Simulated assay, not measured.
Amino acid sequence: MEITKKDVELSGKLAKMKVTDQEADIYKEQLEALFKWVAELKTVNTDGVELAEASLCAHMRKDEPVQDPALARTLIGAFNDQKDDCAKVKKVL
């Protein structure tokens, strides 16, 4: 897959990054190398290879609420503005 400088600039724009011409050249080479490596991996025959062990949720923590009123007050108190026992933050778009 050929990556153009325009592709790199568009990717930077989508990521809200400013990409200089020099950086675009570097990223172009790196992305081409990455896609070349992925294409090479696709050619590897994995027929008959079984997955040894996989735990899809091993890296995830249990999502359990923590009830610590003192910690909550400390964290909320660290913000300049509070509303209804919550930290008030600026709107994010």
Score class of each variant (00 low, 15 high):
Leu71Thr: 14
Met17Leu: 14
Leu41Lys: 07
Lys88Phe: 14
Leu75Gln: 03
Leu51Asp: 06
Lys6Met: 12
Ala33Ile: 04
Asp85Pro: 00
Arg73Gly: 00
Arg73Ala: 09
Val8Phe: 03
Pro65Leu: 03
Ala58Cys: 11
Ala33Gly: 07
Ser11Val: 13
Asp85Arg: 03
Glu29Val: 13
Leu41Ala: 10
Glu2Arg: 15
Lys36Arg: 08
Ala15Phe: 03
Cys86Gln: 11
Asp47Gln: 14
Thr4Trp: 02
Leu51Pro: 04
Gln22Cys: 11
Gly12Glu: 05
Lys90Phe: 05
Lys36Cys: 02
Trp37Phe: 12
Val92Lys: 15
Leu34Gln: 06
Val8Gly: 00
Lys13Leu: 12
Asp47Asn: 14
Leu93Lys: 11
Lys88Ser: 15
Ala39Gly: 09
Arg61Lys: 12
Lys91Pro: 08
Thr43Leu: 11
Cys86Ser: 13
Lys88Tyr: 13
Gly12His: 04
Gly48Leu: 01
Thr20His: 01
Gly12Thr: 05
Asp25Ile: 10
Cys57Leu: 15
Ala15Asp: 04
His59Ala: 15
His59Asp: 12
Gly48Glu: 02
Cys86Lys: 15
Phe79Arg: 03
Val49Asn: 00
Lys88Gln: 15
Lys90Asn: 11
Pro65Ser: 02
Ala24Arg: 04
Trp37Ser: 11
Lys83Leu: 11
Leu75Ala: 08
Ala33Leu: 06
Asn45Lys: 07
Ala70Thr: 13
Thr4Phe: 04
Phe35Ala: 05
Ala24Phe: 08
Thr46Gly: 07
Ala15Cys: 08
Tyr27Met: 11
Lys5Leu: 08
Leu71Gln: 08
Ile3Ala: 02
Ala54Asn: 10
Phe79Cys: 05
Ala39Thr: 13
Met60Pro: 04
Ile3Trp: 02
Glu64Asn: 10
Glu2Trp: 10
Leu41Tyr: 06
Glu40Lys: 09
Glu29Gly: 09
Leu71Cys: 07
Met17Ile: 08
Ser55Phe: 08
Tyr27Thr: 09
Lys6Asn: 12
Arg73Trp: 01
Phe35Ile: 07
Asp25Trp: 03
Met1Leu: 14
Leu14Gln: 08
Leu31Tyr: 07
Leu56Tyr: 09
Lys28Ala: 06
Ala24Glu: 05
Ile26Ala: 12
Ala52Thr: 10
Ala87Gly: 09
Ala52Lys: 14
Lys36Ile: 06
Phe35Thr: 06
Glu32Phe: 00
Leu93Ala: 14
Leu41Thr: 07
Met1Thr: 10
Gln22Ala: 15
Asp85Cys: 00
Asp85Ile: 02
Ala15Leu: 10
Asp25Ser: 13
Glu50Cys: 09
Lys18Arg: 04
Lys13Asp: 06
Leu34Glu: 09
Lys83Arg: 15
Lys13Trp: 05
Glu50Trp: 04
Val66Cys: 01
Glu23Phe: 01
Glu64Met: 07
Pro69Arg: 03
Val89Trp: 03
Glu50Thr: 15
Lys13Pro: 05
Ser55Glu: 09
Gln82Arg: 11
Val89Lys: 09
Lys88Leu: 15
Glu64Gln: 07
Phe35Asn: 00
Thr74Leu: 05
Glu50Met: 08
Ala54Arg: 10
Lys18Trp: 00
Ala15Trp: 00
Asp47Ile: 11
Asp68Gln: 00
Ile3Leu: 01
Glu29Arg: 04
Glu53His: 15
Phe35Gly: 02
Ser55Asp: 08
Glu32Pro: 00
Asp63Leu: 12
Asp7Cys: 03
Leu41Phe: 05
Val66Asn: 01
Lys13Gly: 12
Met17Asp: 07
Met1His: 10
Ala15Lys: 02
Phe35Tyr: 08
